[in-house]
Deep mutational scan, measured.
Amino acid sequence: MTVLPKDIPGDSLKVTVGTANGKPGDTVTVPVTFADVAKMKNVGTCNFYLGYDASLLEVVSVDAGPIVKNAAVNFSSSASNGTISFLFLDNTITDELITADGVFANIKFKLKSVTAKTTTPVTFKDGGAFGDGTMSKIASVTKTNGSVTIDP
């Protein structure tokens, strides 16, 4: 049996954390987006972790974005102690894959008090994996961190 590389060099799934701005007490939304989904033969499963400074940001909610089908079954998240974990699994293993680019999740943060303008990162942590529509590992994932700026 011969195994051929399935990824064209330079191609990767792009996962990007967005940015937001606000004043202390505001609730802002930071999107997590996927790009080049079709090039990577869709997404059938993924789990990953984001870190944030809990002294500056309070997670209000984490909701599935419009590219997630049947989110009540296929999407899960949790947030505590400065870490947000995400889990997606197409429970049907074929019919509810992520097949389009767009917003995977929206994180709502309540901004805490600061004395001066502060930009705090929302960054990928170690761990996690992504699988394509056949549940094979997506070897190349380009992750881009985001941030939230609090301006009193």
Results as ranks from 00 to 15, higher is better:
A139M: 04
D151R: 15
A129K: 01
V60Y: 13
I138P: 00
G10K: 10
Y52I: 08
N74M: 02
S136T: 03
S61P: 07
G25F: 13
I67H: 14
D151W: 15
L89M: 02
A116Q: 05
S76V: 04
V148E: 04
N145R: 08
N145E: 05
N42C: 08
K23R: 10
P121T: 06
I67L: 12
A35N: 10
K112A: 03
M40K: 07
G133C: 07
C46D: 03
P31I: 09
D95E: 05
I107R: 01
L50A: 08
T16N: 09
N81K: 15
F124V: 04
G65W: 09
N106E: 03
N81M: 15
A79K: 15
A105T: 13
T33A: 14
V62A: 11
V103S: 06
V32T: 08
K117F: 03
D26H: 12
G131R: 00
I84Q: 05
S61T: 09
V114L: 07
T94Q: 01
D11H: 13
A100R: 07
S140A: 07
E96A: 07
G22D: 08
N42Q: 12
A64F: 07
K143R: 06
G82F: 15
I98R: 03
K39E: 14
K41F: 14
G102I: 12
G22R: 08
A79S: 15
F48V: 04
V122C: 06
S140W: 02
P24V: 11
T92L: 02
G18D: 13
N21H: 12
Y52A: 08
A100G: 09
S113M: 05
T144G: 07
I150W: 07
V148C: 08
G25H: 14
A64G: 12
V68S: 10
N145W: 03
G128K: 00
D36E: 12
S76A: 14
L87H: 04
T27Q: 10
S61D: 08
K143G: 01
S140L: 08
G131F: 00
I150F: 15
F86D: 01
F34H: 06
K110D: 00
N74K: 04
A100V: 05
S76Y: 09
D151S: 15
L56A: 08
G25I: 13
N81R: 15
T92P: 06
P9G: 14
A20Q: 14
T2K: 07
V59M: 11
A100T: 08
D26C: 13
V15E: 07
